[in-house]
Amino acid sequence: MSERLSVRKTYKLFIGGAFPRSESGRTVIVNDAKGRFLANAARASRKDVRDAVVAARKAQAGWAARTGYNRGQILYRVAEMLEGRRGQFVEELRGSGLGKAAATAEVDGAIDRWVWYAGWADKIAQVTGSANAVSGPFFNFSTPEPTGVVGVIAPDSPLLGLVSVLAPVVVTGNTAVVVAAESAPLPAITLAEVLATSDVPGGVINLLTGHRAELAPWLASHQDVNAIDLTGAPGDLAADCERAAADNLKRVRRPVADDWAADPGTARMTAFLETKTVWHPVGI
């Protein structure tokens, strides 16, 4: 029997539930930690950012209108699919230079993190919302609502870091346009394959690979993006993006030193929530 030809995977972008190549037709070469060729990944352009924002905007109202319980179910389904691909993720992380034990720990951590956030879908309103005492014949409620379309500049931690910034954005009903880690983009696209097969509506999560410095400013200046998470943006780029984001008063989450293994708390979810307070007359 002759030797099999290797079947290599084409890593593309993830926009609106589909896997298009970059509009620009460009690719970047991704090497492993020892400098050996791993794959060609798509190098997204500003027009891919534009298309991703359009897809995210289109999906946002429907995603936010689902019940928290349903969003939780869908995100838990993502965790199930992640679990099924554990081996593949471990291999890919080893390609980026991690040892077997470290890679396994990172994949397990990412799956557990995803499940943890999925659980918050129908609980965050109880924690951040309130029934307010007012001096009048009214019920007065404050409830959290999603901000809208959130741009995410993902950190260099290729899987655990990505999951830790992405899950808290979408669990509350936002939709996301994510610029994946520049150094190791492949696990992000494999995560996209997981998302595409786990009932997440197209457009809720959009993943772009390419150069941060090229893509982040377009996301920051885009008038139809409501918030931006600059976690993965290095100093100068973060400052530029924050300046551009001010133009339409985007919510900005500045980069801080994160320990991805630590208990994340609710801060990343509440950063992209707005509070709506409603007065209901009583007794009429």
Partner: peptide, 9 residues
């Protein structure tokens, strides 16, 4: 303006 707009405007 050089930046992408949105339907809100």
């Amino acid at each position: 303006t050089g930046v992408y707009g949105g339907p809100d405007y």
